[in-house]
């Protein structure tokens, strides 16, 4: 078995006439944290939403090329999109707890997947909150609203919420862009712990974050991949001048 979990081949994403991703080729390895950096509008978020087909929800969405997850093209006509989205859990830039209790936020995905038994749900909620690094802080107020948590707690709630669906991949779209340094650190700790069980793709505006947690880093520019490689190499001796320029803050 190869260690490639996701293969992206010649993938382009259009919204109406606008092309957001242009002929992307990229491999994602199993149990790695792949950091994706690049200036605004370089196609990073669109790329994540192509992986779990959230782009389908946008009017006029269209693609070319293929994304193969564990040997299957996710845009093949017989793919169950609902099941696909369970396998690729996503954390958004702004934490969005649903207007429910902490418990029900975490149990949401499991309930939709058909888990009914209370003891089973209890176990899933506890396990997910522990993995998300939030259990200790909320164990005595699981019934209070998820929207009353602090920003950093909300984002860890969102992380726990996708873990409850038992995904194989975790997609994070600038998960700490609105958080303070300590909350950011907690999320990064969780990611390092989760790496052994999940394959993680981390889109970040903060290049230092990629340097801290990513095993490999990919640099996106104008909807295309400029280069990808071990994080240490990208940050110290990138092959492409544009990568170097971006990391030194010469543009972007």
């Amino acid at each position: 078995m190869s260690d490639i979990a996701i293969e992206i081949r010649g993938f382009s994403q259009y919204f109406g006439q606008v092309r957001k991703i242009n002929g992307l080729d990229l491999d994602v390895r199993r149990h790695e944290i792949l950091g994706i950096i690049g200036p605004a509008r370089s196609g990073k978020s669109t790329f994540l939403c192509a992986l779990n087909r959230l782009n389908d929800l946008v009017r006029g969405s269209r693609h070319e090329g293929a994304i193969v997850v564990e040997g299957r093209d996710i845009y093949a006509p017989d793919v169950d999109v609902v099941e696909l989205r369970r396998r690729l859990g996503m954390v958004f830039a702004t934490p969005v707890p649903l207007p429910r209790s902490i418990y029900e936020n975490v149990a949401f995905g499991a309930r939709r997947a058909g888990v009914r038994r209370r003891d089973e749900l209890d176990a899933i909620v506890r396990d997910s909150l522990e993995k998300g690094g939030l259990w200790e802080e909320v164990l005595d107020r699981l019934e209070s609203s998820g929207q009353k948590l602090s920003g950093g707690q909300q984002q860890r709630l969102c992380l726990a919420r996708i873990l409850a669906v038992k995904p194989e991949f975790i997609l994070l779209d600038e998960p700490t862009s609105g958080l303070d340094p300590i909350s950011t650190m907690k999320i990064e700790e969780s990611l390092r712990r989760l790496k052994k069980d999940y394959t993680i793709i981390l889109v970040t505006n903060n290049t230092k974050q990629a340097a801290r947690v990513a095993d490999r880093t990919a640099f996106f520019l104008n909807g295309g991949l400029v280069e990808v490689g071990p994080t240490a190499k990208i940050f110290t001796a990138p092959d492409d001048r544009r990568t170097d320029d971006y990391l030194r803050g010469r543009f972007g």
Binding site: L54, L57, R85, V96, P99, G109, R112, A113
Partner: peptide, 27 residues
């Protein structure tokens, strides 16, 4: 109803109908 709620619901593996009945309508 904030569009983010729908996005979150879909990304957690809800069907359209589940999203409508469990997230959109209650809000």
């Amino acid at each position: 109803v904030p569009p983010e709620y729908r996005k979150v619901s879909f990304s957690l593996g809800s069907t359209k109908w589940q999203t409508v009945t469990r997230v959109v309508l209650p809000s």
